[in-house]
Lab assay of single mutants.
Amino acid sequence: MGMPNRKYADGEVVMGRWPGSVLYYEVQVTSYDDASHLYTVKYKDGTELALKESDIRLQS
């Protein structure tokens, strides 16, 4: 078993793309699913969504 190939840690605050949009919002990573390679993130309004790594970026 190798290390999970994840870029962002639980609790890390990053920018997540809103689905169907080009806009990124501040989100907190809450979990990562090794099987689906999706991150569960929480937006400031409390919305929780699963995002692909390509829809997440570090805060500038």
Score class of each variant (00 low, 15 high):
residue 1 M to E: 15
residue 1 M to C: 15
residue 1 M to Y: 02
residue 1 M to P: 15
residue 1 M to F: 04
residue 3 M to V: 15
residue 3 M to K: 15
residue 4 P to Y: 08
residue 5 N to H: 06
residue 6 R to Y: 03
residue 6 R to N: 04
residue 6 R to Q: 08
residue 6 R to T: 03
residue 7 K to V: 09
residue 7 K to Y: 05
residue 7 K to S: 06
residue 8 Y to L: 03
residue 8 Y to M: 01
residue 9 A to D: 07
residue 9 A to K: 12
residue 9 A to W: 08
residue 10 D to E: 06
residue 10 D to G: 03
residue 11 G to C: 07
residue 11 G to L: 05
residue 12 E to T: 10
residue 12 E to M: 14
residue 12 E to N: 05
residue 13 V to Y: 14
residue 13 V to I: 15
residue 13 V to F: 14
residue 13 V to S: 06
residue 13 V to L: 12
residue 14 V to Q: 01
residue 14 V to H: 02
residue 14 V to A: 05
residue 14 V to R: 01
residue 15 M to R: 06
residue 15 M to S: 05
residue 16 G to C: 13
residue 16 G to Y: 07
residue 17 R to F: 03
residue 18 W to M: 09
residue 18 W to S: 06
residue 18 W to H: 07
residue 19 P to W: 06
residue 20 G to H: 07
residue 21 S to C: 08
residue 21 S to E: 06
residue 21 S to Q: 09
residue 21 S to T: 14
residue 22 V to S: 14
residue 23 L to H: 12
residue 23 L to P: 02
residue 24 Y to V: 02
residue 24 Y to G: 01
residue 24 Y to H: 04
residue 24 Y to I: 02
residue 24 Y to C: 04
residue 26 E to D: 05
residue 27 V to A: 12
residue 27 V to F: 13
residue 27 V to D: 00
residue 30 T to E: 10
residue 30 T to P: 00
residue 31 S to R: 09
residue 31 S to D: 09
residue 31 S to H: 11
residue 32 Y to A: 00
residue 32 Y to M: 01
residue 33 D to R: 02
residue 33 D to K: 02
residue 33 D to C: 06
residue 33 D to N: 09
residue 33 D to L: 04
residue 34 D to A: 11
residue 35 A to L: 11
residue 36 S to E: 07
residue 37 H to N: 13
residue 37 H to W: 07
residue 39 Y to L: 01
residue 39 Y to V: 02
residue 39 Y to F: 02
residue 40 T to V: 10
residue 40 T to G: 05
residue 41 V to G: 02
residue 41 V to M: 02
residue 42 K to Q: 10
residue 42 K to G: 02
residue 42 K to F: 07
residue 42 K to P: 00
residue 43 Y to G: 08
residue 43 Y to N: 07
residue 43 Y to F: 13
residue 43 Y to E: 02
residue 43 Y to K: 07
residue 44 K to L: 10
residue 44 K to W: 13
residue 44 K to S: 11
residue 44 K to F: 10
residue 44 K to E: 09
residue 45 D to K: 02
residue 45 D to R: 02
residue 46 G to L: 04
residue 46 G to P: 01
residue 46 G to S: 05
residue 47 T to L: 07
residue 48 E to L: 14
residue 48 E to W: 07
residue 48 E to D: 05
residue 49 L to K: 07
residue 49 L to H: 13
residue 49 L to W: 15
residue 49 L to D: 03
residue 50 A to D: 09
residue 50 A to G: 07
residue 51 L to A: 02
residue 54 S to T: 12
residue 56 I to V: 04
residue 56 I to D: 01
residue 57 R to Q: 11
residue 57 R to D: 06
residue 57 R to G: 07
residue 57 R to N: 06
residue 58 L to G: 13
residue 59 Q to D: 11
residue 60 S to E: 12
